[in-house]
Amino acid sequence: MTAPIRVLVCDDQVLVRTGLVTVIDAQPDLEVAGECGDGRAAVDLAGRLRPDVVVMDVRMPVLDGIEATRLLASAGVLHPVKVLVVTTFNLDEYVYEALRAGASGFLLKDAPPSRLLNGIRTVATGAALLDPGVTRQLVGRYAARIRPAAATPHDHPLTPRELEVLRLIAEGLTNGEIARSLVLSPETVKTFVSRILTKLGLRDRVQAVIYAYRHGLVT
């Protein structure tokens, strides 16, 4: 049998944290490795417990979720972990800063439990996950910050089709939506996405979005 995905839950609101723990622990393929109420404790516990995924709140005492995510996702740590940020905040700087810090996913707390569970499983595989609509809101609101004012198309190793896929990723489309838009199979789109990430040396779709805007590949 495949070992369950080990999850560390970090949220300073006890009732919220308890609810997350209960929902996660009820799944046969997930296991709560630990829980805590601030970012510093999350970093410390992650070093000891070595979870696969940390479910992280943003606004917390001692060390906020953004800085904790930056430490957990750092290439310099002995055991970097995937971070899924779950917060009540949407149209503000937290989305952008969490993703820049290295979060693999971003969900809102009003998302149904099924979306949370899917998010944990998704980021555990190494893929990225954004709450529906968040990508569009992210690039729409922060495009000016992501992309330098004098940005020009960057030299890149992508084929025309891969560039087309990257642009659609940057617009917030899912693999299924990209497949329908380009009349391709989802499997083919998945292959294109994997090639794009490999060629550009990117970790996930989130970095692909930021890359595309930073280098003027989308308008």
Score class of each variant (00 low, 15 high):
199 K>M: 06
203 R>A: 11
31 E>N: 13
115 R>N: 14
140 G>H: 01
129 L>I: 06
91 L>V: 15
9 V>C: 07
203 R>V: 13
42 A>C: 01
37 G>H: 13
128 A>W: 02
148 P>G: 05
112 P>K: 09
36 C>K: 08
114 S>L: 10
113 P>Q: 01
11 D>L: 07
184 L>D: 02
4 P>A: 05
51 P>M: 08
59 R>M: 13
212 A>G: 01
47 G>F: 07
192 F>T: 10
198 T>L: 12
42 A>I: 05
167 R>L: 02
99 L>V: 09
63 L>D: 00
117 L>R: 11
119 G>P: 04
24 I>R: 00
218 V>K: 11
128 A>Q: 05
129 L>N: 06
184 L>G: 05
10 C>N: 08
5 I>R: 09
113 P>L: 00
140 G>E: 00
29 D>W: 10
49 L>E: 04
195 R>H: 12
21 V>W: 07
37 G>S: 10
113 P>A: 04
172 G>W: 09
174 T>L: 09
112 P>V: 13
109 K>H: 05
73 A>Q: 08
147 R>I: 04
87 T>G: 04
1 M>V: 12
160 P>W: 07
130 L>G: 03
208 A>W: 06
78 L>W: 14
170 A>L: 08
28 P>F: 04
154 H>F: 14
209 V>D: 06
214 R>N: 04
6 R>T: 13
13 Q>H: 14
36 C>D: 01
94 Y>F: 14
130 L>E: 06
54 V>D: 03
121 R>G: 06
85 V>T: 13
85 V>Q: 07
54 V>N: 05
186 P>D: 00
24 I>F: 05
41 A>L: 11
119 G>T: 03
65 G>W: 05
148 P>M: 05
66 I>R: 05
125 T>N: 06
29 D>S: 04
207 Q>L: 09
101 A>P: 05
29 D>T: 11
154 H>W: 15
12 D>P: 10
125 T>D: 05
118 N>S: 12
42 A>P: 02
42 A>S: 05
158 L>A: 02
23 V>M: 03
46 A>S: 09
153 P>L: 03
85 V>M: 08
16 V>P: 09
115 R>G: 08
72 L>S: 04
18 T>M: 14
61 P>T: 01
190 K>G: 14
41 A>E: 11
144 A>D: 12
203 R>W: 00
145 R>P: 08
91 L>G: 15
88 T>K: 12
154 H>I: 15
143 A>Y: 10
15 L>V: 14
136 R>M: 11
187 E>K: 15
203 R>G: 09
54 V>L: 07
39 G>F: 04
218 V>L: 04
216 G>R: 01
2 T>G: 13
63 L>I: 11
210 I>N: 00
153 P>V: 08
97 E>F: 10
161 R>T: 15
84 L>F: 07
143 A>I: 11
29 D>Y: 02
145 R>A: 13
171 E>I: 05
70 R>T: 00
9 V>F: 07
18 T>A: 15
56 M>A: 07
22 T>E: 14
196 I>V: 07
89 F>E: 11
188 T>S: 13
35 E>F: 12
36 C>F: 06
146 I>G: 03
135 T>S: 15
81 V>R: 06
190 K>Q: 13
83 V>K: 06
91 L>S: 14
107 L>M: 08
145 R>F: 15
190 K>E: 11
100 R>M: 15
214 R>Q: 04
167 R>H: 10
187 E>C: 11
167 R>W: 06
12 D>K: 02
84 L>T: 05
25 D>N: 14
86 V>E: 10
206 V>Q: 03
203 R>H: 08
